[in-house]
Simulated scan of single mutants.
Amino acid sequence: MTAPEVGTVLVDTGHDSRTGEFRGLAGPYWMLRPIEGGPEWEAEPEHVRLATPAERLSAKTARENARSRGEVA
Rank of each mutant, 00 (worst) to 15 (best):
65 N>S: 00
57 L>F: 06
32 L>T: 05
67 R>D: 01
43 A>N: 05
48 V>Y: 02
72 V>K: 06
71 E>Q: 13
28 P>A: 05
69 R>K: 11
29 Y>D: 13
17 S>T: 06
2 T>C: 05
9 V>N: 02
39 P>A: 13
41 W>C: 06
36 E>G: 03
14 G>V: 12
50 L>C: 11
68 S>T: 14
3 A>H: 13
68 S>W: 06
11 V>I: 15
26 A>T: 09
72 V>D: 06
65 N>W: 00
30 W>T: 06
14 G>Y: 07
65 N>R: 05
22 F>W: 11
33 R>P: 08
2 T>K: 14
49 R>Q: 03
9 V>E: 02
47 H>E: 14
37 G>M: 10
64 E>T: 09
34 P>G: 02
5 E>K: 13
17 S>R: 14
20 G>W: 02
10 L>W: 10
50 L>N: 12
23 R>V: 11
54 A>M: 06
39 P>Y: 09
23 R>T: 09
16 D>W: 12
61 T>S: 06
13 T>F: 03
32 L>H: 00
38 G>K: 08
18 R>P: 05
30 W>M: 02
7 G>E: 12
62 A>C: 00
70 G>I: 03
65 N>M: 05
46 E>P: 06
42 E>T: 11
59 A>N: 11
15 H>T: 06
21 E>Q: 03
69 R>L: 13
61 T>N: 08
36 E>S: 10
11 V>Y: 00
59 A>I: 12
63 R>E: 12
3 A>W: 12
28 P>M: 01
51 A>Y: 09
